[in-house]
């Protein structure tokens, strides 16, 4: 019995030392990782909305009754309002779309103007097949979303105007469908003026 106790104690000691060491390193790296993630999102937000203006302001928006089109992948639709930093006029929105791809949940940062037209998309995260689905984050593919309206935002096979990546229909569909679903949920709540109303 004493033997088992001794061995258990040694094992516990090793695990404890490991946990303390990692806790220390984590306290150093966690803020950096968080900051980097925040910067990346910020950067992506700026990129996808760059055509809306030079000095923009981003405020997260609480929309009452907003549906969650991403329940399948256990994420939420979080809308950020984009307005002119000087005049305060609402220029558009950004949100992150989550779509189940071939081997990962693809995250796309989407920018739309206030009429519901897409002004830019950028892939935030994907683990799709290199050489096939992973090409979704590159130009010219992701650029074709620019200027598209809700009804056009699906792959050609499904009646939309997005060209699929050769050999990666699943990824193409994941991105375009998730983007469209987000836009549709926003349209339901009358966030868009002009043509795109529910």
């Amino acid at each position: 019995m004493g033997e088992i106790l001794r061995l258990g104690l040694i094992l516990m000691l090793v695990a404890l030392v490991a946990a303390v060491a990692l806790g220390f390193v984590n306290s150093k790296t966690a803020p950096i990782i968080e900051e980097q993630e925040r910067m990346r999102r910020q950067e992506a937000m700026r990129t996808v909305t760059s055509s809306l203006g030079d000095s923009l302001q981003f405020d997260s928006l609480a929309v009452e009754g907003l549906a969650n089109p991403y329940a399948m992948v256990d994420r939420r639709l979080a809308v950020v309002a984009v307005s002119d930093a000087v005049s305060g006029d609402r220029l558009g929105y950004t949100f992150v779309a989550y779509g189940k791809g071939y081997s990962s949940t693809v995250q796309t940062m989407v920018g739309v103007d206030s009429s519901g037209r897409i002004v830019g998309c950028s892939i935030l995260y994907q683990q799709e097949t290199p050489g096939l689905g992973a090409n979704a984050e590159n130009q010219p593919w992701i650029g074709q979303f620019e200027g598209k309206r809700i009804s056009q935002c699906s792959v050609r096979k499904d009646g939309g105007e997005i060209d699929s990546i050769t050999g990666a229909t699943i990824t193409s569909r994941a991105v375009s469908d998730s983007v469209r679903e987000g836009l549709e949920a926003m349209r339901e709540q009358d966030l868009f003026e002009g043509g795109e109303r529910a």
Binding site: N68, A71, M72, R76, S103
Partner: peptide, 26 residues
């Protein structure tokens, strides 16, 4: 409860996607 949404029932389509995905596709 699933980790992020506030729970919800079993989604058959999602389950089928997981099963087929794990055996064949991935």
């Amino acid at each position: 409860a699933s980790p992020d949404t506030g729970g919800g029932g079993v989604n058959v389509a999602k389950m089928m996607a997981i099963i087929l995905g794990a055996i064949f596709i991935n």
